[in-house]
Design a protein around this nucleic acid. Structure first.
Lengths: 167, 167
DNA sequence: GCCGCATTCTTCGAATTCGAAGCAGTAGAC
DNA sequence: GTCTACTGCTTCGAATTCGAAGAATGCGGC
């Protein structure tokens, strides 16, 4: 009951607000650049980037969705779009017939290469310009544990599917 | 023109990715809590919170939109919803007939008070649990300049910004 | 005072987003 | 082998989001 303070202290509040505000602004700016340069949304870019980072150039649908924190159905929609543009290919997984493996095509890799410089430029200018090398190191050092912590938290509504008329 | 490096160094990349990932996860968790506790979306909560923070309990539409980094039309839609629920009221601005002043109602303030503890709880648990007091201080110290920097950047093909410090 | 242009908010259409429900494949118990 | 629960993906409907265009007001120059 009284475990959690009724409010955050001012420093926490500031950090929280700034975090939300900074990423909102950054996302906005990045989105515009991606739209102009390669007609991509941010999610689409994230997907291509993740695939590009993979040694095999592919990932399962579920892993992609979890990776970019997106709904399954939303991912289906986005991968549909990317496939229509010829940027990725879908193929059934060899070891598990249920899984779909999404793979980056050459066109996808090319588009990624085309948008990347501008993307880097925006992020550098907006996010990193006011930060020294040590600042960035400190920031990374602070955020990594938070990310791990969040990823390790139970999903809080991991309610297993309900049986109808159970009980 | 080719001054910008072709890529970010690994530390920068890590900080950038973690930033995006952390806020995505946090937003997701917060959104669920708000939906369950008060049937509010994150944007709606942000709007109520901003109004609640204001000494007068009100803001102009434009300032709200800029504050939460949202499109004008999107804000119109959201304020419509909030007004239908009786959480805010719209009134023409006294000094500028073009402006609409949005004001928090008692019901809005009550709902805000109702959801706030749970909100604080989620943020504390997810974001601040792995951080020491000094960590939080450091994080706030790093993000504030970035926020200021981003806010001061020209919007890159948007309307000429109108900076107003006073109020 | 009057005109041209900027600012504010809304309406509109199109695209995206999510959750719930459904289908198919897999794994473990017996 | 067969049954039951679970996982992975898609379809579907409803709600949200944005940008462009439109209507109304304010501002500056003349």
């Amino acid at each position: 009951m009284s475990d959690s303070p009724p409010s955050l202290d001012p420093v926490q509040l500031g950090a929280y607000f700034d975090l939300i505000e900074v990423t909102s602004l950054l996302r906005h700016a990045v989105e515009r650049q991606l739209r102009e340069t390669g007609d991509l949304s941010y999610v689409q870019f994230q997907l291509l980037a993740r695939l590009g980072d993979s040694p095999t150039g592919s990932h399962r649908m579920t892993d992609l969705a979890d990776g970019v924190v997106y709904s399954r159905s939303g991912l289906t929609y986005q991968v549909d779009l990317l496939q229509k543009e010829g940027l990725v290919v879908r193929a059934p997984s060899p070891d598990d017939e249920r899984s779909i493996t999404v793979t980056l095509t050459d066109a996808g890799r090319a588009l990624l290469a085309k948008v990347l410089p501008g993307h880097v430029e925006v992020v550098s200018r907006l996010l990193f310009e006011p930060l020294s090398r040590n600042d960035v190191k400190a920031l990374a050092g602070l955020l990594a544990p938070v990310r791990d912590h969040m990823r390790s938290m139970p999903s809080r509504s991991a309610a297993p599917r309900r049986r109808k008329a159970g009980a």
